[in-house]
Design a protein around this nucleic acid. Sequence first.
RNA 1: GCUGCUGUAGCUCAGUGGUAGAGCACUCCCUUGGUAAGGGAGAGGUCGCGAGUUCAAUCCUCGCCAGCAGCACCA
Length: 670
Amino acid sequence: MAEAVSLSFPDNSVRDYPPETTGADIASGISKSLAKKAVAYALDGEVRDLADPVRRSGALEILTRDDPRALELIRHDCAHVLAEAVQELWPGTQVTIGPVIENGFYYDFARETPFTPDDLPVIEKKMAEIIQRNKPFAKEVWDRQKAKDVFAEKGEGFKVELVDAISEDQDVKIYSQGEWFDLCRGPHMASTGQVGDAFKLMKVAGAYWRGDSTRPMLSRIYGTAWATKDQLKAYLHMLEEAEKRDHRKLGREMDLFHFQEEGPGVVFWHSKGWRMFQSLVAYMRRRLDGTYEEVNAPQILDKALWETSGHWGWYQENMFAVKSAHAFTHPDDEDADHRVFAIKPMNCPGHVQIFKHGLKSYRELPIRYAEFGNVHRYEPSGALHGLMRVRGFTQDDAHVFCTEDQLAAECMRINDLILSTYADFGFQEITVKLSTRPEKRVGSDENWDHAERIMAGVLDEIAAKSGGRIKTAVNPGEGAFYGPKFEYVLRDAIGRDWQCGTTQVDFNLPERFGAFYIDETSEKKRPVMIHRAICGSMERFLGILLENYAGHMPLWFAPVQAVVATITSDADDYAREVVEELRAAGLKVELDLRNEKINYKVREHSLAKVPAILVCGKREAEEKTVNIRRLGSNTPSSKTLAEAVAALSEEAVAPDLARGMSRKAASNDA
RNA sequence: GCUGCUGUAGCUCAGUGGUAGAGCACUCCCUUGGUAAGGGAGAGGUCGCGAGUUCAAUCCUCGCCAGCAGCACCA
């Protein structure tokens, strides 16, 4: 027979309870008000139903709605309420799964006609009704076969499949809320009333059953739920703010780039956007630091070359191919040139050709070829998304040809470069993921074993070297078709993660192309190849930067660093002089002499996110000063022209150059 | 690619089975104004493309294209 349990509480008190005491019993034993507010309990941190008996000793906490751990319960319960509401409104709709996700939950339904946004308020109303009914959540453990029979009889085929997926050592648990019940592993709160009213259905979407694009598409409803109305409001407000920093919106407002129908997924860079692009390229080029050789390989190459590389076989659905226009318009003309060329989706095969041109000695290794390579990939239409996912983009790509002995050191060297680059753009939270062999792949298992072993070692070293600051993880089966890879994921200012950099070890491509170097004993040896990118795609990286900074680019990166704006035309000549001085100092400056009020000019340039507005009126012209208004501040400051030029040009130095300057200064001092 | 929604002036968006409207932007005129919109006038649209229904289609139907959200895929 079960023995009494001894429980310790957050206030450090310890009490004994008879066997089979439930969380609810304990709560009501403590106080009436706690019993009323309790939604669940945690035993040694594990959250459980209030109605669950406490069967072992440990640290016990009664959770109320305000506990952060209750949030997950609120959301999960809300998903159940949603499912009941939908089935009550539209009987015959099948329920499938409804998990908690970041900031909310969703529930996937199977039905003939998908939901429309108009359905959401109707469902919300029904949900409020169910919450009002305040039915207790009750758990039962069912016999596996009974569960399958019951769901089968209800026409819930997906649930039957889910029951089958529960492993034999697990109970099949059913949670009911009044008449309605669902298969669920729990835990849940005490009753539907505890869900509260701080929830909102957000959107409808299609989603594949079990995330598999070969299986049926279900109708998903996304919702968000919080402990209080204020939290819900804050979340909705946060979403609005995030929308304001959408790079597509900023691109329009700041006149950086556009897209149009004739070019799905390819960017029209306007002058200011292209300036930013060029700043990024210039920065990355400086960081090549003389240790890479920059090269440039052709945009189109014979299909045969891509067959050799394996791309034609493994990557075909993502590739564009071209032939002469004449061959297109005259497919039957035997005299026409019908050769098929692929537009490069990757730079690696080109770089192997450059490596192969001429004999290479072991003395030359590692050879590092860098290219700001413009690649095209035929991305699925639904994947396109502003600058973040395009069909034509520029990679800050490089391929390192080295010996196996050099491999680990090269990976670390790349790691250091990647991390310092991200730091220069203010990204500190980085995760490095090791992606291992995918199902669709080229190369022998021995090669994969080998490469993965080396990379696992490097991953540990990366973590150790950063002193735990860099998080690491493993992504099984997510590697490229030719080799395992490190993915560098950075977190931006509003907490979103972006995969940018990548380091991929490749034993296959050198072999496929028969690349070799001559070793110490005059033998031909196969080099190992490392693919690496830091920004990944320059386009995407710029999109990330725009959103990270909400368009407020740091001075060194801003396409227009300052605007000199006059108050009246009396100051025109002086304003021209100011612009000249700033330009002489290398600053990107524009002049606004328009016949408009200063309010108007300030507003317009502020909306265009110009970092500094230099206002010049009669006073400034007489005193040879400028009045500087920095973006985001409404308290301008007056400086002499010389001071302003010095301050702005110092701030406009790129971080890598600033490092160089401070090193130089330090060595001069010494 | 899949599911749903959307496509009207440079931008944001109204609107109607009888071929269109606002605000901002643009051009011109007045205004020389001290830190987020001074006033007036004017110009600007094959209502995404193609078929169909209809006396008549921007509006209804179908197909295509593109965009948005999610899924799948991914730098």
